[in-house]
Each structure stands twice: as C-alpha cells, then as structure tokens.
Design a protein around this nucleic acid. Structure first.
Length: 412
RNA sequence: GGGUAGGUGCCCGAGUGGCUAAAGGGGGCAGACUGUAAAUCUGUUAGCUUACGCUUACGAUGGUUCGAAUCCAUCUCUACCCA
C-alpha cells in the first residue's frame, strides 16, 4: 500500500463516523506510529458482523504501520455493555468467557497479523479489572466522572426509561479505565470502535486527558445498517457469524449476495479492500447490472473471512443453483438413514424435518399448501405425499423451499 | 421502607369469567411480480393429528368456578413517585 496515512485512507473510504480532535489526530498519525486498540466482548463464542468494520479499520491501521491491540473484555464481560440494549445482558461464567476468547482470537487473525514489527497484541482486561480494589478505584478514578454528564450520554438516555442498574452504569468507567491502562502500559493513544461506543470511548479519552494531560483519541466507524436502518447481519436464525461452523461459507456468501441495492456501496467500501474508484464504479451500476457488484461484494467478503477456496466454492454453488439450474455436488446436503424408510417410501414432512428445512410438521404443512416446497423441481402440493424410493434411484433428491433454499438428500 | 402502575405469543400491544391459540401493528416465512434486489399486493406465523380433536401457552405457585389470561391469595420481577 503506497499511502500509509491512515487518516487519509479512512477518510477516503468513509470509515470515520466521529473522531475527537481531528486536526491533532491528523498530526499524530502522520508523525508517529502508535498503538491502536479495539475492544471486543467475549460474550459469544464467535464475532459477528458488528465487529467487522472496526476490524477492517484495524487492518488499515496495521498496514499503515501502527500496532493493533485487541482488547478482550474478559473483565467487562461480567458487566455487559448497556449501550443499545433494552435489557440487561446475561452474565457469563468464567469458563464460557475463556472458551469464547480462544475462538475470537482465531477470527481476529483474519484481519490483523500477529507477526512482523508491528504485530498485533492481545490483551485481556480481566488482568487488571478483576482485582481492582473498589475504594481505591473510586477514589482515584471515580472522581473524574461526572454523573450528570454520564447521564446525558446517548447510551444511557435510552436506558433511563427502562431502568439502568449501577452495575451496568459502571461499564463506561471500566472501558475508560481500559483505555487508560493501555495508554500507560503501551502508550496506546487511539481507541477505535463502532459508533454506538462513542460515549464510552469519549469518556476514556477524557479520563486520560485529565490524568496525564496528554493526547489520546478515539474514532468510531459507521454502523452497518440495512435499508430499514437496523443493524445488518441479523437473520431469522440469529446473527450472521464469522465462524464457519455457525454460518456456513455458502450462507455467508448468500447473505451478501442478497443485500439490497442501496446497501451495495456501503458494503463494498467498508467490508472489502476494493479500491474506491472501483467501488464507485460498481455501486453506480444500474438495474440488473448491480447484481454483478453484489457478486463481487459477496465473493470478496467471503474470501476475506473464509479464504479463497471457500469463496470460489460458494460462488460456484450459487451460480449453479440460480443461474445454471443444474444440480451440483456442492449443494448443502444431508443423508437419511434408509432404516427410517417406510415400506413404500418416506413422508415428505418427515424429510423436511430431518433436513431442518422446517422446525415442525405444522409449518411444513403450511408451506406445502402454499406451494413453497418442491422436490426435484416438481411442486409438492399434498402434505401427505410419500416420496417413493424410486426417487432416490439416481442417488439423491433435491428439495427446495421457496426460491433460495436448496438441499440435497442422499440415502444411506 | 411506603405508595402507584404493570409483567400477554419472536417484539410491541389490545383483551378483564365462556364466542380467546388470544384483536391490531412490527418482524419472520411463503405466493404473485422481479434482477437470488427494493417497493407493492396476497397468504401464513404454538405443537401433535388424515381428520373429529387433543396437548401446551397470557410472570410463578396455589385456590374459587361447570369453565380463568381475565376473580382471590401468596410469591417474584419491572417502572414511576415519596423517603
């Protein structure tokens, strides 16, 4: 990468939503290489789309010569960030958290490198938060936090209606303390995060400036919102995960392939490394042509997370299914034990359940009556339909739900 | 500690003894139309059963009743007001 000015890169890619002391920040990054930190809560065993953009940002920072610090919130996970939540998050046990941490590190390594001069560093805030002495903490740091100000922060305002416990209220102090610790231990001067973290991050910057009279900064990236203004990455089955065992590469690819037209530009610019000129060209394609841009986006993002082979394979599956109309060996498949067969075949509803296409027979029945289920490209209209054994003569059958969900079923 | 209002399906929210598997909206899924898009229109959205129907469900437990989301008691949780 020729340009190593992180500020210019982020600006160009429109990755900066809010930033503190913009001019000072510009000076800092053009004159020195510093440490940059991103906090991730180990509240799930995989990271999700919400972490994607900050991680992209981190990747740019590293490429520009800065050193990433990934802070795992092993300590703060006990609290749970109240931002944007209407209910208190479930607290996790120590065992769960440490299990999650391992997975998260693996996924983070797709974005940042742990080798080289500015190898990324992993830290766990449990190391300094869990043995804090309460009195000492509130006397030394608590005095710097003004409750009136905290209450005016957007993230707490929302919670004021539903109720906010003191326990959660402390999240901001903890996060600020993290930044302070990293500032002291690593001279880390920059914190990055999603825009929903702005007030928490800001309070860290203020704390450092109060105690050390020295410059620290935070930058937030835009949240990835879908056309309805909601956070992207949610599906019926829950979130889209970066872990292949939770969201298969094919599903992952499909998610990005199916974004709406208006989301294309955001996705390309924020989630891929495609040069901005190309991003602009692709996202200005009109009508049907924009599908090409979606394919590229889906491919690039899948490649980034799951590797080139998985991306190629996912692309191939999807082309075969949707464009060539041919069966494919790569189609998601399941096998059914032949011992579960009836004498004359297998009930269609049972197959639907076994293949996890529907969660219950009632729903399967509804779908069949609505004409949503087809078998080997023939619509099934009778919920009592028995799939004859002869259907399996060619070795498998292809079941389809709606337009987009295909599954190949083999008999063993 | 005292008072008040509440806890209903994935979410919001109506319902205040039988017509209630529970209005309405959102979301989801599906059908039509399309570009694997959006918008729109339509259907559907607890489980089991071929079906009659049965089972589970309106914070928890117990009770009143032929019959309860609905009445009573106790408990629990939440918000607000007063301290």
């Amino acid at each position: 990468m020729e340009n190593t000015n992180i500020y210019e890169i982020l600006k160009k890619r429109e990755l900066i939503q809010q930033i503190t002391f913009e001019d000072e920040f510009k000076n800092l990054v053009s004159n020195e290489k510093t440490h940059v930190y991103l906090g991730i809560d180990p509240t799930a065993d995989s990271i999700h789309i919400g972490h994607f953009i900050p991680l992209m940002m981190m990747s740019y920072f590293q490429k520009c010569g800065h050193t990433p610090i990934i802070l795992i919130g092993g300590g703060t996970a006990f609290i749970g960030d109240p931002s944007g939540k209407t209910d208190m998050r479930k607290m996790l046990s120590k065992e769960d958290i440490s299990k999650n941490v391992d997975n998260i590190i693996k996924q983070v390594s797709k974005f940042v490198s742990f080798e080289g001069n500015n190898a990324a560093i992993i830290v766990n805030n449990g190391d300094w938060i869990l043995d804090l002495n309460y009195m000492e903490f509130i006397r030394t740091y608590g005095v710097h936090f003004n409750v009136n100000r905290m209450l005016s922060a957007e993230c707490f305002k929302q919670r004021m209606e539903k109720g906010l416990t003191f326990f959660e209220f402390n999240y901001m102090l903890m996060q600020s303390y993290d930044f302070l610790k990293l500032f002291e231990n690593y001279s880390c001067k920059i914190e990055i995060g999603g825009d929903d973290q702005w007030s928490n991050m800001l309070s860290g910057v203020e704390l450092i400036r109060k105690i050390h009279k020295d410059g620290s900064f935070c930058i937030t990236c835009p949240l990835l919102l879908n056309a309805e203004g909601k956070k992207m990455g949610k599906t019926v089955n829950g979130a889209i995960w970066l872990d292949a065992s939770k969201t298969s590469p094919y599903e992952f690819y499909q998610y990005w392939r199916n974004i709406t037209d208006t989301e294309v530009r955001d996705v390309l610019k924020m989630l891929t490394f495609i040069p901005m000129e190309e991003v602009n060209r692709l996202s200005s394609l009109e009508g049907e042509k924009i599908n090409d841009a979606k394919k590229i986006a889906a491919f690039e993002i899948t490649k980034l997370i799951h590797g080139e082979n998985a991306a190629i394979e996912s692309k191939k599956i999807s082309e075969d299914l949707f464009e060539n109309q041919s069966d494919n060996n790569n189609m998601p498949k399941i096998t059914i034990d032949s011992s579960s067969l009836l004498k004359d075949g297998l009930n269609i509803l049972d197959i639907l359940i076994k293949s996890n296409i529907v969660p219950s027979k009632s729903q399967g029945k509804t779908l069949i009556l609505q004409g949503a289920i087809s078998l080997d490209e023939e619509k099934i209209t009778d919920p009592l339909y028995i799939v004859p054994i002869s259907s399996f003569d060619k070795g498998f059958i292809v079941l389809r739900k709606g337009k987009k969900i295909f599954i190949k079923i083999e008999l063993i």
